[in-house]
Design a protein around this nucleic acid. Structure first.
Lengths: 233, 233
DNA sequence: AAAATTATTATGTATGCACATAAAAGCATC
DNA sequence: GATGCTTTTATGTGCATACATAATAATTTT
């Protein structure tokens, strides 16, 4: 039984995964330290470190200085969702993309909006309602508020050809944001726009982005009934 | 103007982020190569590499050998969702968790299930329906099928005290899986279990895990109306 | 016995160097 | 001018070494 020698970090990672899967190292178990593994695998500690770090990032391992590395007791399923442009999303499905701006106005937002965006109640924001279509059928309804104090150049945009979804991505930097997924019943308005029954269960994505302490934009995307957001684990 | 000297990868990362945000490097732009940046930042190329690699992982940069590194033209919003145990999820909200098994049976699944799980149509699977409660109010309805060929030990489990959600996590290794989020209208059955109106918009998570080529389990989680899944960008 | 201090240890990371590898660019050949 | 080969180059990775840092364990002090 000689050392098989794992000469790159990917193979080390694979071997560690194998051992966890084979229950040689069980959830909650402390695994040997990097130096020992390096010795066993016949590689440098750096290489082991790289492999274990990647596994920790993936949620498979829990690592803490001095305490050592252990197999995650609760392997948190980390689903990484790729939120692409709606245009891209539709085209990748092999469908034809089109876009319709419904309304564009500068108006005082309801309190619910100015509250979460932390803008003054009396402050007018740019409000755009638009529809994204796949093969000429309604796909997603975009309802967006833009803080023109932060994005002054948006004032000059009509958003009649280019969706705010796309325009903002390339024109507006942001530092951080929040995203929330939920289900909601279609109001009469929303049903009319999406051409579905009132009260249908719609998949909703609410996203808000910030540039430092100032809110950039808040958007609600409502997808036609049956929409799924999927990814691999 | 002397070199400020960035001596660790985090600060290099920050500086790169800053330059992208300040539009010094615009989306689509090619940025200087690692060696040049290392020189400019007064650190080793390894350090720059680490920083740029992390940014590429985050979707901020696109890197290709020989072609160089460029600012992502379409900064794909990568939302990483932490799908924890429902018990953990509820407890973290400061609520009281309880669990009720509704039914447990070994039965032939509908074709829709055996199809996606790629089990023989005539093959009986373990079917569990259970309810997760927060402060004694229905929180999520779990409807699960378990492939007992792959998880024989599940045959001995009653799942009357411990939810399959929790039991499987610690007892069953899997190699990969899929997860999908959607919105669905509550059927009469589901409405009764979740104590909500029939036709309510429910947030649904469908998850299926595999051990190599064999399906381990398929679960549908239906959350009470109003449920949100949120994360930061 | 409790609290504060010190030692130990496993992970975290920076560095210089070497070589691997993918892909673009240049060059030669037909 | 299209095709295939060669060179160049930027990223990708491995390794030895050194030191940093956080957290535990051991020890001393109160």
């Amino acid at each position: 039984m000689s050392a098989p020698s794992f000469r790159n970090w990917q193979s080390v990672q694979e071997e560690v995964r194998r051992r966890i899967h084979a229950r040689i190292w069980k959830p909650g178990d402390l695994i040997p330290n990097e130096a020992d593994l390096a010795l066993e695998f016949g590689c440098a500690r750096t290489t082991v470190n790289r492999a274990l770090r990647a596994l920790a990032d993936a949620g498979v391992l829990d690592r803490r200085r001095k305490a050592g590395t252990r197999v995650a007791a609760q392997p948190v399923a980390k689903a990484t969702l790729q939120i692409a442009l709606i245009k891209t999303e539709i085209r990748e499905r092999g469908q034809d993309y089109s876009y319709q701006r419904l309304t564009r106005s500068k108006s005082i937002p309801p309190a619910a909006i100015s509250d979460v965006m932390q803008t003054a109640q009396s402050r007018a924001l740019l409000h755009i309602r638009a529809l994204h279509l796949a093969d000429d059928k309604p796909y997603a309804f975009e309802d967006r508020w833009i803080n023109t104090d932060v994005v002054p150049s948006a004032r000059a945009e009509a958003f009649d050809m280019l969706s705010p979804n796309e325009w903002l991505l390339t024109h507006t930097p942001y530092t951080h944001g929040e995203i929330a997924f939920s289900a909601t019943e279609a109001t009469a308005d929303e049903a009319a726009v999406l051409k579905c029954a009132e009260g249908s269960a719609l998949f909703a994505i609410d996203r808000m982005t910030w540039d430092g302490a100032r809110s950039v934009t808040k958007v609600r995307l409502l997808f036609r009934p049956g929409h799924q957001l999927r990814t691999n684990l």
